[in-house]
């Protein structure tokens, strides 16, 4: 169902200190990756309510990426641990409602990992493109 022209809608929610900085570094390094992601910045992934992710899927997102600091590196000590716990819950919930949980991913990209950010986004876009448009969008049509 995914034809050549189809552009997935992927929401990225990233922390200010690690992944957003890592994404900026990717920019500085001119590391090229697909433009199918839109970023919402928060101070810490700990800020992210699991409902934000579900809201995004309800709104028709084809994929959601959460990215924070590596464990032990959180600017606020342990926000990323708490985010990770919540996001495991989201994954379970997605499976239980029949939404492929590969559409949702949590990664850890530090402020010095510009190249990794490029790889992560490329991979997320590839995965979501393989999965095709979100079934929620189909239903809403």
């Amino acid at each position: 169902m995914a034809d050549e022209e189809w552009k997935p809608k992927i929401l990225g929610m990233v922390c200010n200190w690690c992944s957003y900085a890592g994404a900026d570094l990717a920019g500085g390094g001119r590391i090229q990756y697909p433009p199918d992601i839109r970023i919402v910045r928060v101070m810490c992934t700990g800020r992210l309510d699991q409902l934000f992710v579900l809201k995004a899927f309800a709104d028709g997102a084809d994929g959601v990426l959460i990215s924070g600091c590596h464990f032990g590196d959180c600017h606020y000590l342990e926000g990323n641990y708490k985010a990770a716990k919540r996001m495991f819950m989201v994954k379970r919930l997605m499976k239980s409602i029949g939404l492929d949980d590969r559409r949702f991913r949590m990664t850890f990209v530090s402020a010095s990992e510009g190249a990794k950010w490029g790889k992560v986004v490329t991979d997320v876009v590839k995965t979501v493109k393989e999965l095709g448009p979100s079934p929620i969008t189909e239903i809403r049509k």
């Binding site: 994404a23 090229q32 990756y33």
Partner: peptide, 11 residues
């Protein structure tokens, strides 16, 4: 810029 023009230079 950092998260757009610099990383999608040819798109």
């Amino acid at each position: 810029r950092e998260q757009n023009s610099w990383v999608h230079m040819h798109d």
